[in-house]
């Protein structure tokens, strides 16, 4: 028993020694998985010059972040969708709610690179995700059933897609809910029949991005930073920071950094669209 006590005490001393650092203020960022990488990159850069401020980033989904904000568990909720009316009411019960657009994102529709389908109309895309079109040959592709990949219901991207593309109709029952956008990309890279929607920041050569058309007559546009900037790409959305209460002190320092040229350069580097 004594040996163990000794071990525990040693560990305690070591940890206490590690812990003897000056007090730091903590800024908690929680929410959107689409934005978690951006948030982490911004935090990392910010902490290099503000060593006394600790910015903690965690993901889980936009709903997670807003829930945490309402429950008072986070300082900033990152969200890839508008705050819902019910959430707004709850949040405002706790103080003034601030909504800050920190970046824009295009939602790319991606498939396996070997898929012969290169473009879809918005109507076809909706029909596919509602389960009305189930075979690739219905949209000019191979005779193979379509594997639907979606983000989890916790995701702001899920909600945005449901509201904007499906017009609030339900996803087809066969839709696979993936825990993260990266999981969708990984599945797309090895599944020749899958389709998924991913933020611009996640696009890489392992997947092919489809062109989107408003209707049969119009020209197909492929998601890109430029296409979002010049408003030619339809599936674009703002990315938000939500904050309750007065924005001051270290929190304000951080927000100023995020919208500054340096902060927006990081946004751009990660494949998102800067705000100006």
């Amino acid at each position: 028993m004594k040996k163990l006590l000794l071990l525990v005490l040693t560990l305690a001393v070591v940890l206490a020694a590690v812990g003897c650092q000056p007090e730091k203020t903590v800024i908690d960022i929680n929410g959107s998985d689409t934005m978690v990488n951006m948030g982490a990159a911004l935090a990392e850069e910010f902490m290099k010059t503000n060593r006394n401020i600790e910015v903690v980033v965690s993901g889980g989904g936009s709903g997670t972040g807003i829930a945490a904000l309402i429950d008072g568990k986070t300082d900033i909720a990152q969200s890839s969708r508008d705050i819902r009316e019910s959430e707004r009411t709850k949040a405002q019960a706790r103080g003034t709610l601030h909504e800050i657009v920190v970046a824009w994102d295009g939602l790319a529709i991606a498939v396996h690179p070997s898929n012969p389908v290169k473009e879809l109309t918005m109507a076809e895309l909706a029909a596919i995700y509602k389960g009305e079109l189930t075979n690739w040959n219905q949209v000019g592709g191979n005779n193979a059933s379509i594997v639907l990949l979606s983000r989890d219901t916790t995701s702001g991207t899920h909600v945005f897609f449901k509201d904007f593309v499906l017009d609030e109709a339900e996803f087809a029952p066969a839709t696979m809910m993936m825990p993260s956008t990266e999981a969708i990309v990984q599945e797309l890279a090895q599944n020749t029949n899958a389709i998924g929607y991913i933020g611009l920041g996640y696009v890489r050569p392992a997947v092919a991005v489809l062109g989107l058309k408003a209707d049969e007559a119009s020209k197909a546009v492929v998601a890109s930073v430029e296409a979002v900037l010049n408003h030619t790409y339809g599936l674009a959305r703002p990315l938000f920071f939500y904050i309750i209460g007065e924005v001051k002190g270290d929190l304000k320092t951080f927000l100023d950094f995020v919208v500054s040229a340096n902060g927006q350069k990081i946004v751009r580097d990660l494949g998102f669209v800067p705000i100006n």
């Binding site: 590690v18 978690v36 935090a43 990392e44 903690v56 980033v57 965690s58």
Partner: peptide, 13 residues
């Protein structure tokens, strides 16, 4: 119960 996604600092308490 809430592990962080990214936090390049060691815990202090």
């Amino acid at each position: 119960t809430g592990a962080a996604f990214f936090l390049p600092r060691l815990p202090t308490s």
